Computed example of a mutant assay.
Amino acid sequence: MLHVKSIPAFNDNYIWLIISEDNRCAVVDPGEASQVIDYLKANSLTLSCILITHHHWDHTNGIDDLVRYAPNAKVIGPDVHPIPQRSMAVGDGDQIDVFDHRFLVVGVEGHTDDHIAFVGDGKLFCGDALFSAGCGRLLGGTAEQSLNSLKKLASLPIETQVYCAHEYTAANVAFALTVEPENDALHLYREEVNRLRAQGKQTLPSTIEREKRINPFLRTQEPTVIQAVAGRTAADDELAVFRALRQWKDEF
Rank of each mutant, 00 (worst) to 15 (best):
Ser206Cys: 01
Ala185Trp: 06
Lys249Phe: 14
Pro181Ala: 02
Val75Phe: 05
Gln85Lys: 14
Leu40Lys: 10
Glu238Ile: 07
Ala26Asp: 07
Leu245Asp: 04
Asn72Gly: 13
Ala165Tyr: 11
Thr112Lys: 15
Val162Trp: 01
His81Gly: 12
Phe175Val: 08
Leu124Val: 00
His81Leu: 15
Gln95Ser: 13
Gly107Ile: 02
Thr112Gly: 13
Trp248Tyr: 05
Glu209Ala: 15
Arg195Gly: 10
Ile7Tyr: 11
Glu182Cys: 10
Gly110Cys: 04
Ile50Met: 00
Ala174Asn: 15
Asn11Tyr: 10
Lys249Thr: 09
Arg86Leu: 07
Thr178Leu: 04
Leu45His: 01
His111Met: 06
Leu124Asp: 00
Ile96Ala: 03
Asn183Lys: 01
Ser34Cys: 07
Phe175Tyr: 10
Pro8Tyr: 11
Ser34Ile: 06
Gly31Thr: 08
Asp237Ser: 00
Glu191His: 14
Phe118Trp: 00
Ser87Ala: 10
Cys126Pro: 08
Glu209Gln: 15
Leu245Gln: 04
Gln85Glu: 13
Ala165Trp: 08
Ser149Arg: 11
Tyr168Met: 02
Arg213Val: 03
Gln247Val: 13
Asp65Lys: 11
Glu109Leu: 10
Ile214Ser: 13
Ala42Val: 07
Gly107Cys: 01
Ser20Ile: 05
Ala228Gln: 02
Leu218Ile: 07
Asp236Phe: 10
Arg210Phe: 10
Asp100Ile: 05
His56Gln: 11
Glu180Thr: 03
Asp58Met: 08
Leu138Asn: 07
Gly110Phe: 01
Val105Thr: 00
Asp22Ser: 12
Arg213Ser: 08
Val75Asn: 00
Leu147Glu: 05
Leu147Ala: 06
Asp128Asn: 02
Leu218Phe: 09
Asn194Ala: 13
Lys152Gln: 10
Lys151Ile: 15
Lys74Pro: 08
Phe10His: 12
Arg190Glu: 15
Ile7Pro: 14
Gly140Glu: 00
Leu150Val: 13
Val162Cys: 02
Ala174Tyr: 13
Val90Asn: 01
Arg190Tyr: 09
Leu130His: 15
Ile83Val: 05
Gly93Met: 05
Ile37Gly: 11
Leu196Ala: 09
Thr220His: 06
Gln227Trp: 13
Ala117His: 01
Val105Gln: 04
Ala198Phe: 11
Glu180Asn: 01
Ile18Leu: 10
Thr60Asn: 00
Glu211Gln: 08
Gly107Phe: 01
Leu153Gly: 09
Ala176Leu: 12
Ala174Pro: 11
Leu204Glu: 01
Gly91Lys: 14
Glu159Val: 13
Val36Leu: 07
